[in-house]
Simulated scan of single mutants.
Amino acid sequence: MGAIPGLGEHTDSALAAVGFDTDDIARLRATGALGIEADHPIRRPGPERTTQ
C-alpha cells in the first residue's frame, strides 16, 4: 500500500477526468470553490505531518 494522498492532492486530475479544463479549474480555485489552497497553513507539512 502506498502513502496516503494529501488533502486535495488529486483535485485537479479528478476534475479534468470529468471534463473540466485548466481554465475551469483555475476559476473554481480563484473563487474558493475548491477549498483550502496549497499555501494555507493547514496544508503545509509541519512537524506533525510530513510528506514522503
Rank of each mutant, 00 (worst) to 15 (best):
M1K: 12
G2Y: 03
A3G: 10
A3M: 06
I4L: 11
G6S: 13
G6L: 09
G6M: 06
G8H: 00
G8T: 01
E9P: 01
E9S: 11
T11A: 10
T11M: 03
D12I: 04
D12W: 01
D12K: 03
L15E: 01
L15A: 03
A16R: 14
A16E: 15
A16N: 08
A17N: 09
G19L: 11
G19S: 08
G19N: 09
D21G: 14
D21V: 02
D21I: 02
D21Q: 03
D21S: 05
T22V: 11
D23A: 15
D23Q: 13
D24N: 10
D24S: 06
I25W: 00
I25F: 00
I25G: 00
R27E: 07
R27W: 02
L28A: 08
L28Y: 01
A30C: 05
A30V: 03
T31N: 09
G32Y: 02
G32P: 02
G32V: 01
A33P: 02
A33M: 11
L34F: 03
L34E: 02
L34T: 03
G35V: 02
I36L: 13
I36M: 12
A38Y: 10
A38I: 12
D39W: 12
D39N: 12
H40A: 15
P41K: 05
P41S: 09
P41R: 06
I42H: 09
I42R: 10
I42D: 14
R43F: 10
R43S: 15
R44F: 04
R44N: 12
P45D: 11
P45A: 11
P45H: 06
G46Y: 04
G46V: 04
G46C: 11
G46W: 04
G46I: 04
E48M: 07
E48D: 15
E48N: 12
R49W: 10
R49K: 12
R49S: 15
T50C: 07
T51K: 05
T51E: 14
Q52E: 11
Q52A: 12
